[in-house]
Simulated assay, not measured.
Amino acid sequence: MKRQILFLLVLVMVCESWSIPKPMESITNYNVMMVHGAYGIKNSDGELQGFEPGSYSQAIDAKDRLGAATMGSYTSNNRVTKWISHDILEEPEWGNDSSYVRNSYVYNWRAFSNTRNTSKNNAVELGNRTWNKEGKFGQRRALVEEAQEVKAVYDTLRGQNALEIIRGNPDLYSQLASRYILIGHSMGGVVSREYVQGNFYNGDVDKIITLDPPPMKVLGR
């Protein structure tokens, strides 16, 4: 009888451990990635313009790359990137964007190579670690890799070269943030979802937060 009671207690404890949601890991293990949506053409002053509500054909027809498209820089007042960095994560002010990208948990450094590409194609650029290995677009690589390599330092090396060495050393790699929280605005939310549902997903995303995603009927789903 005592053994049966003990077995039941153990079984209840195991079931509770499975049913209760697990807390997230320490933020030091994460890159918080800002995934922007589609951007429109530039005006006469060179500023990026958003699309008119419902004018999704503008995004389909646009061809030029807008490398500056982001969700606001780290130092832009009243923008979501700075708000997350300072008000949510309580990070210090580092003075300029290049200092933030090496120190902040928030990664918001560059746009997709084609900011109006399809969500599935941009999902490949977001997370497929074989994307652009041959350097066909400068030295750009999948965004999840860039979020790591901008912070990678080994001896006198930085960036991609340092990351390649760190990846070969489990002790060093464990010290580099390797999991992701994706915060996607508009089409960026769809891109984030396409990544985790794609056949190249690396199992490295713990949270996806979408801000004003487009209606599903627009995506043909």
Score class of each variant (00 low, 15 high):
58 Q>L: 07
188 G>R: 06
23 P>K: 09
194 E>A: 11
99 S>Q: 12
137 F>P: 08
41 I>H: 15
66 L>Y: 08
76 S>R: 07
202 N>L: 14
174 S>Y: 06
212 D>M: 03
43 N>A: 09
10 V>A: 05
7 F>D: 15
34 M>K: 04
114 N>P: 01
46 G>M: 09
206 D>A: 04
82 K>C: 05
83 W>S: 02
143 L>Y: 03
116 R>W: 05
120 K>M: 04
113 S>W: 08
52 E>D: 15
119 S>A: 11
79 R>D: 08
172 L>H: 05
63 K>P: 11
163 L>D: 00
27 I>D: 04
149 E>N: 01
113 S>I: 13
95 G>P: 11
141 R>D: 07
174 S>K: 13
94 W>R: 05
155 D>N: 10
147 A>K: 03
203 G>N: 15
109 W>P: 00
149 E>K: 03
197 Q>N: 09
20 I>R: 08
221 R>Y: 11
22 K>Q: 13
161 N>S: 14
106 V>G: 09
13 M>G: 08
69 A>T: 00
217 K>T: 12
33 M>F: 12
38 A>E: 04
48 L>D: 06
49 Q>T: 11
95 G>W: 13
87 D>W: 05
16 E>T: 06
99 S>L: 14
46 G>V: 12
89 L>Y: 13
64 D>E: 09
105 Y>I: 05
213 P>H: 06
110 R>L: 05
9 L>W: 07
197 Q>M: 11
78 N>C: 07
43 N>L: 04
148 Q>C: 06
70 T>H: 03
102 R>K: 14
69 A>V: 10
18 W>E: 04
106 V>W: 10
73 S>M: 02
183 I>H: 03
166 I>K: 06
218 V>L: 15
42 K>W: 02
80 V>S: 12
22 K>L: 10
215 P>E: 15
218 V>R: 01
181 I>A: 04
137 F>A: 05
220 G>P: 00
189 G>K: 10
129 R>E: 13
130 T>I: 00
25 E>K: 10
137 F>M: 10
183 I>V: 14
218 V>S: 11
130 T>V: 01
187 M>V: 10
195 Y>S: 00
42 K>S: 06
115 T>N: 06
1 M>P: 13
91 E>C: 01
26 S>K: 05
216 M>K: 13
51 F>S: 13
11 L>W: 11
186 S>M: 00
56 Y>W: 14
95 G>R: 08
60 I>Q: 09
116 R>I: 07
205 V>H: 01
217 K>W: 15
207 K>F: 01
119 S>T: 15
175 Q>S: 03
120 K>L: 12
221 R>E: 14
111 A>R: 00
217 K>Q: 12
98 S>W: 08
91 E>M: 04
137 F>W: 07
139 Q>I: 06
49 Q>K: 13
214 P>A: 02
26 S>R: 04
80 V>Y: 04
121 N>V: 09
75 T>I: 03
1 M>I: 04
38 A>C: 10
119 S>N: 15
117 N>Y: 10
80 V>C: 10
175 Q>R: 14
14 V>E: 05
1 M>D: 12
133 K>R: 14
202 N>Y: 09
41 I>F: 01
188 G>I: 03
71 M>A: 02
134 E>V: 02
63 K>S: 07
176 L>W: 03
197 Q>A: 13
146 E>M: 12
48 L>S: 06
